[in-house]
């Protein structure tokens, strides 16, 4: 079993490394990720949102909807813990 998993992991890892070969060089300022969408945020952050911290302005404004989802995830986790852990102590007092 262990050798099978090891083989699986080596195959998966080499496939992932194969995929990295065509990626833009690390830190290349002209990589597509740095020239397509993100310059707009850097240029417009002050004008659109009056926020010097661009990460905050993207987090809470341009992509604020993701952040709402993020807080919902935390709420979900809290309710899950509430559901799973709270009542059991009372039900199973013998433990």
């Amino acid at each position: 079993m262990k050798t099978f998993i090891l083989a699986l992991i080596i195959i998966a890892g080499s496939m992932l490394i194969y995929g990295t070969q065509d990626m833009p060089n690390w830190g290349d300022p002209q990589s597509p990720a740095s020239v397509h969408v993100s310059p707009y945020y850097i240029k417009r952050s002050i004008i659109d949102t009056e926020t010097p911290n661009i990460v905050s302005s993207v987090l809470a404004d341009y992509r604020g909807y993701d952040t709402m989802g993020e807080t919902t995830v935390i709420f979900t986790a809290a309710i899950v813990c509430f559901l799973l852990l709270r009542r059991r102590d009372e039900d199973e007092g013998d433990r």
């Binding site: 740095s34 993100s38 945020y41 661009i54 990460v55 993207v58 987090l59 992509r63 993701d66 993020e70």
Partner: peptide, 18 residues
Amino acid sequence: AINVAHYLNPLPHVLMLT
């Protein structure tokens, strides 16, 4: 006045906060 190449790309940071 803002030189884009002067600042890190903020979007991946935002995504990773989430």
